[in-house]
């Protein structure tokens, strides 16, 4: 069935997000919070703030959704800032932006597919 195929694709995509280190267990936490009362909870959370301008906000936001790679980059960025390393700051900031954009794209695709597969399909989260 097309639906089943979609589901499978979705599961694969999700798994690859973890495998490639984009997401961590916090994302699973969010998925576990999703229930009948909030069938699209994860998406609601993840798209709540499209593009935070404040670095601290972005950082904590990435913590909330379990954006592993972005988190790592923002940590690097913070460390460079603290160390007063302008060059490192700039470099990691670019990296951060890149990771952020990548993640955003991936997640958008993922959620779009999830919507197509139907609300329950995210149940593929059961690993």
């Amino acid at each position: 069935m097309e639906r089943n195929q979609l589901r499978r694709q979705l599961a694969v995509m999700r798994q690859s997000l973890f495998d490639q280190g984009f997401l961590d267990e916090q994302f699973i936490q969010l998925e576990e919070l999703q229930d009948d009362a909030n069938p699209n909870f994860v998406e609601e959370i993840v798209t709540l703030e499209k593009s935070p301008l404040d670095f601290n906000k972005l950082d904590s936001y990435m913590h909330h959704i379990g954006a592993k790679k972005v988190k790592a980059e923002s940590t690097h960025f913070r460390e460079y800032c603290k160390a007063g390393n302008a060059e490192g700051c700039l470099r990691t900031f670019q990296q951060l932006k890149k990771e952020y954009t990548t993640l955003k794209k991936k997640l958008e695709a993922y959620f779009q597919m999830a919507r197509q597969a139907g609300p329950k399909e995210i149940a593929g989260r059961s690993k």
């Binding site: 969010l30 919070l33 229930d35 909030n38 909870f41 609601e44 959370i45 709540l48 703030e49 906000k57 904590s60 936001y61 909330h64 959704i65």
Partner: peptide, 15 residues
């Protein structure tokens, strides 16, 4: 002050 986190926390606490 973080709406995202508030939402997550609320959900968790309710659970």
């Amino acid at each position: 002050d973080d709406p995202t986190w508030l939402k997550i926390l609320e959900k968790m606490l309710k659970k």
